[in-house]
Design a protein around this nucleic acid. Structure first.
Lengths: 143, 143
DNA sequence: TTATCGAACGATAACTATTATCGTTTTTAT
DNA sequence: ATAAAAACGATAATAGTTATCGTTCGATAA
């Protein structure tokens, strides 16, 4: 049994999840991938090492990794398309518990820098900030 | 013909789109809705005023409004679930043309505020910043 | 105004992404 | 080694969205 396998067993123990072959390969493949691949892309990679794996297993374990805190979801937003009707310059406060989204004005947020040049020659058009945390209601519920 | 109708005709003229009854009611209903309703929620509201409207029309016109710049999509992210494998504290640069997403470290971004209390007693856990703009490749293509 | 033609509409089939179900297999705890 | 719990694979089901297509509406010009 190699080192990586021992590492993975320890990681699973820390997060209280069972160690399976599929889970380990999935984890290692994801760690080795650049950027932010889709579940389908991850599935394709993992399938090369575990040909019998099911797409459902990939989904189930991605969720498990996220719930366990091993990985994090990129976007906290709703699944369906949402549109801004508020034409004021604003950003969003997203409750990590109840998923409610409320608007917050640029000044209230206290956003400052607004650099127009960033690494790799990226040209800034605008910033979109999500403040993730707990809304008042969920703070009470949690106490 | 009331004032609102005239306003809507002007708006359509400015954006080069045709004036239809469905389109006008949809626009007015969306403007009057709080928060960030889903297409289904918008559909339900509009249906009260135009019972024969189709969900497809709601989708088509939401897209049209976004493409025309009348409204803006909340999230620029991919349709499928994406996960962070980069465990460093970072944010994202999203190209508005090719939709490519790349990571940017917290320091490189020069983010400052980190207030822990915001309006309505919202308790901050973390900030997630999307810098929207043009990547180097798309800047060249655009020139 | 009315005729014309392209755009938009409504109904619905199709598609994509995701989740649920369920019988079988693998882990874990004993 | 064994029994219970968890995970697996196959696939059906669901949610959200888009495409298709025949019909109707709206803008323009006579």
């Amino acid at each position: 049994m190699q080192q990586t396998s021992l590492d993975f067993r320890r990681l699973c123990a820390e997060h209280g999840i069972a160690v399976t072959h599929q889970r380990q390969v999935l984890y290692e493949v994801m760690q080795g991938m650049e950027g932010h691949p889709s579940p389908e892309e991850v599935f394709a990679q993992v399938k090369e090492k575990v040909p019998a794996i099911s797409l459902a297993t990939v989904y189930k374990n991605i969720h498990l990794f996220v719930e366990s805190g091993i990985f994090r979801k990129m976007s906290v937003h709703h699944g369906s398309v949402r549109v801004e009707m508020n034409s004021e310059e604003h950003h969003h406060m997203v409750c990590s518990r109840c998923k409610a989204i409320s608007d917050i004005g640029e000044e209230e947020l206290g956003l400052s820098p607004r650099r127009h040049r960033l690494p790799d020659g990226f040209l800034v058009e605008r910033y979109a900030v999500d403040v993730i945390g707990l809304c008042a209601k969920c703070q009470q519920a949690a106490s």
